[in-house]
Nucleic acid binder design. Structure first.
Length: 864
RNA sequence: GGAAGUUUAGCUCAGCUGGGAGAGCAUCCGCCUUACAAGCGGAGGGUCAUAGGUUCGAUCCCUAUAACUUCCACCA
């Protein structure tokens, strides 16, 4: 092994070995239990961000753990075509050549899309590899693959034929930049400061006026009414009359509708049915005409008169000027509101009436709701079930059509001659009704999430009955972020239940969002994003993984910065160095069963602690408490293995006694090997690197058996901590006397109970407390000494005149105070009748015992 | 407007199906001790947001309050 820990020297080499040996591969095997996970497909043309790093660390830890436990484990990777995002990039590339979509035509455009996928599609996968993802790359899927596309068409046709898909006119959110409709969840509301324009609409009969307040003056050309609340006394007399729409000079009616809030603004609202969902509904109720004034490109159209051709937002200024000129602008005030924006490009979306394709949701949602309510589908943490249920219980129909060219084209065909219309899995060439060949296909494509919703089964071959689908489906766990529960998790669940009659997974593990070290969301605007590849380059994938997981709890947002990766690297370095020590001392060792050795107290202690660790690690991994498990592993490594066992083992290793040396070597090897296996899911590279150098190692740590609790190596009545306590107390006293660590002193031990224990550990005390010589004494020494007390053993450091009486007194009285406090506390508890009567017996007994011990201890201290 | 979450050491966060508060970093003191100075030893530092309640006992359960965060709905 290299002298210093340098992950860049071996991480990629090890990954290549794993790949080459097909350790990630998985095949249906009826003799084994399976464990399957499907990867949330990242955007094919995207790059990994720290959110991926976190999510993938979680998945890989779970998957590696299960694989080591002997499950036939499949982690199925893949990517998503992300139509809107990719189309925007291809359009951008065309623009640079001075071309438009329309100029190159649909077919060529799609070809360019594929070129794009091919050029950039592998970047993200390579990045995931460098993070250590142990997925079965041979099964890598892409939502636009032939078989996945077949799944999309198959499911569409099934929905369609069963009446779940319909075409309908509704107000939808339209992104003028992406030139497509987007669904409600893709429409994000952002706060902005704008103005509230108060505009005067004069009554047609000249008897007065109505002032309306609006945030969107540019839509006034599409106004077809002014609405007031029927209860509003101010406007009672004018309901039914007409007002004149300024600039346009057109009469429009005043209507009464509950929708208007009397308190807001002036209590009168201008109604633009074509450009606002509420106005649209109101328009339907009152039979109002619809006037479209904004075109798909976000520009005002001919209905806006002289403002035609201007951008909807830019037109506000000249419109305001015109209103002022006409004397109908009462006032403007600054106003904060929220406007819908496209989640992909951030452009303000335009509510717009149009004909779109929809999936009826109410009925599909029902079994998905039931699954969680019955406990068949579980979320970790549980609170996210509420988010899921809340969404499904208030679900709206799903707008699945997008006005794009990239993606899965809607397989609905219409006969130009007889008007026949239907959905087909194969392209329709001849009308089944009139045999005409004049067939057209719907121009729109499907929402990207439509194909993602099929992911857990389409990737396994569905709708074909493949052995993979049969064996690996349903999958076991889905790990994803809470930000896509509504986009994706919900849709996979109802799609899975509808098409396969099974839940696509049993458990959903939700991770939080990775924020910057100041707790802010990472964003391009702030420039505070962290590139995971940079972290991997600087600290290694292992450090990045551990730092993202350790000490966190599932579902919580985490603040992250390079410092954390550095901390993890420092720890891994420690593990690496400890391993180097073990390796250096076990080179030519003989491997023997631990039962063949006479174990002393420190051996029993480390082995028992290790068994506890194995048990707790399994328990925590099973409930996805990954951050707790790793913290325990790290704590054991440093505070038990390195600080005490390794140091103490040096005595046995250098004793010259072959039996002792053999024993120490075998214990060191066993503890380290076990520890590496427990750590492997978190830090796969370095554990493999070390493992490959261990005596008696197997082919790979990846496929070695995950440690199991061994009761034969778990001992009771461990006493080594009494020795530790004495060493600690001596060290503290030395520190108080400013005796540097490298200065040896003689130490006299006066055991209070177990003389044998201390007699057996004299050399341990000498080694770890800096003793030149350590002796057992039978009574208080006459020599002037610094006195060190613990509850089971006193230690005396003979220092002659260097003994500081004042300090000795202070230390003694401090100890006495402590004891008195403890005794008072115990007595108070035990004198409480309620405690004695109601607390568990073991607790009461323990308290009694503690009290008796402390009293004895105190007596002994005071007696001197 | 509806819902959820967070509040613990100077900082970043763990922990708790209720039984004496933890880690890392930072700070202070002492050490290059032959795995590790990316280290070792020692030390200081917290009414576990506030107020009530349940209990023999509350950081943990319940109820209010405050601050911050997020999700959903949305008033022109």
């Amino acid at each position: 092994m290299e002298k210093t820990y340098d992950p860049s020297k071996f991480e990629s080499r090890i990954y290549q070995t794993w790949l080459k040996n097909k350790y990630f591969a998985s095949r249906p095997d009826k003799n084994k239990k399976k464990f399957s996970v499907c990867m949330p497909p990242p955007n094919v043309t995207g790059k990994a961000h720290v959110g991926h790093a976190l999510n993938h660390a979680i998945q890989d830890i779970i998957v590696r753990y299960k694989r080591m436990q002997g499950f036939e484990t499949l982690w199925l990777p893949g990517t998503d075509h992300a139509a809107i995002a990719t189309e925007a990039k291809v359009v951008g590339a065309l623009e640079k050549e001075g071309l438009t979509k329309e100029q190159v035509g649909r077919e060529n455009f799609i070809r360019r899309g594929w070129d794009w996928y091919k050029e950039y599609g592998n970047i993200i996968c390579e990045q995931l590899m460098s993070m250590g993802d142990s997925c079965d790359w041979d099964r890598k899927a892409f939502t636009m693959d032939e078989n996945l596309s077949r799944a999309v068409r198959h499911s569409f046709v099934e929905y369609y034929n069963k009446g779940y898909i319909y075409q309908g006119k509704r107000v939808i959110n339209y992104c003028p930049k992406c030139r497509s409709s987007i669904s409600d969840i893709e429409n994000e509301y952002k706060e902005q400061t704008t103005k509230l324009w108060h505009i005067r609409y004069p009554l047609e009969d000249g008897s007065g006026e109505v002032v309306v307040a609006t945030t969107r003056p540019e839509t006034m050309f599409g106004d077809t009414a002014v609405a007031v609340n029927p209860k509003d006394k101010r406007y009672k007399n004018i309901v039914g009359k007409n007002v004149i729409l300024p600039i346009v000079n057109k009469p429009i009616p005043v209507v009464a509708d509950e929708y208007c809030e009397m308190e807001f603004g002036t209590g009168a609202v201008k109604i633009t049915p074509a450009h606002d969902p509420n106005d649209y509904d109101l328009g339907l109720r009152h039979n109002l005409p619809m006037v479209v004034v904004i075109d798909d490109d976000g520009k005002l159209n001919e209905n806006a008169g002289k403002f035609a051709g201007m951008d909807r937002i830019e037109a506000r200024k000249p419109i305001e000027a015109e209103l002022k000129k006409l004397g109908v602008l009462v006032k403007t005030e600054t106003y904060k509101n929220k406007v819908g924006c496209c989640c992909r490009c951030g452009t303000m979306t335009e509510p717009k009436v149009s004909e779109q394709w929809w999936v009826k949701m109410k009925e599909l949602a029902k079994p998905a709701i039931e699954a969680v309510k019955k406990g068949e589908l579980k979320f970790t943490p549980k609170r996210y079930e509420k988010m899921y249920l809340n969404w499904l219980e208030n679900i709206q129909d799903w707008c699945i059509s997008r006005q794009l060219w990239l993606g899965h084209r809607i397989p609905v065909f219409t006969c130009k001659d007889c008007g026949f219309k239907g959905a087909f899995e194969e392209d329709l060439k001849v009308c089944p009704k009139c045999k005409s060949k004049h067939i057209t296909q719907d121009p729109d494509v499907l929402d990207t999430w439509f194909s993602s919703a099929l992911w857990p089964f389409s990737t396994l071959g569905w709708p074909n009955k493949t052995p993979e689908l049969d064996y690996f489906y349903p999958t076991d766990v889905l790990a994803t972020g809470y930000d896509i529960i509504t986009f994706w998790v919900v849709r996979m669940v109802f799609s899975g239940l509808f098409f396969t009659k099974k839940l696509p997974f049993k458990e959903v593990v939700i991770n939080g969002i990775v924020r910057d070290s100041q707790g802010r969301k990472m964003s391009k605007n702030l420039g505070n994003g962290i590139d995971p590849m940079e972290i991997v380059g600087e600290y290694g994938a292992d450090s990045m993984r551990l730092s993202l997981i350790n000490g966190t709890s599932m579902g919580m947002d985490i603040s992250y910065g390079k410092e954390k990766a550095k901390e993890s690297k420092i720890f891994i370095n420690k593990l690496y160095n400890a391993s180097k020590f073990v390796l250096a001392n076990t080179e030519h060792m003989q491997i023997k069963p631990l039962s063949s050795f006479a174990l002393d107290e420190k051996d029993k202690w480390v082995l028992s602690k290790l068994q506890d660790l194995i048990r707790s690690t399994i328990k925590n991994l099973d409930k996805y408490a990954l951050g707790v498990a790793s913290a325990n592993l790290i704590d054991f490594t440093i505070s038990i293995f390195c600080d005490w066992y390794i140091e103490a083992s040096k005595i046995d290793l250098n004793s010259g006694n072959k039996e002792s040396k053999d024993k120490a070597q075998n214990i060191l090897l066993y503890v380290l090997t076990t520890l590496l296996k427990l750590f492997h899911p978190y830090i796969p590279f370095v554990t493999e690197e070390i493992y490959q150098n261990l005596p008696g190692h197997e082919e790979t740590i990846m496929l070695s058996k995950f440690p199991e609790y061994n009761s034969k190596l778990a001992f009771k009545n461990l006493k080594f901590e009494e020795v530790i306590a004495v060493i600690r107390a001596v060290r503290a006293t030395r520190s108080q006397y400013n005796i540097p660590d490298n200065k040896k002193v003689s130490i006299n031990l006066l055991p209070l109970e177990d003389e044998k224990l201390f007699a057996e550990n004299l050399n341990v005390v000498a080694k770890l407390a800096g003793g030149s010589q350590v002796n057992i004494i039978k009574s208080e020494p006459k020599e002037k000494s610094a006195k060190v007390v613990t509850s089971t053993c006193n230690a005396y450091l003979p220092m002659g005149d260097l003994v500081d009486e004042a300090q000795e007194k202070e230390r003694a009285s401090k100890k006495i105070e402590e004891l008195k406090f403890e005794i008072a506390r115990s007595e108070k508890m035990l004198s409480n009748a309620g405690f004695v009567a109601k607390a568990p017996k073991t607790l009461v007994d323990a308290e009694k015992e503690k009290l008796a011990k402390n009293k004895e201890f105190l007596k002994q201290l005071l007696g001197e």
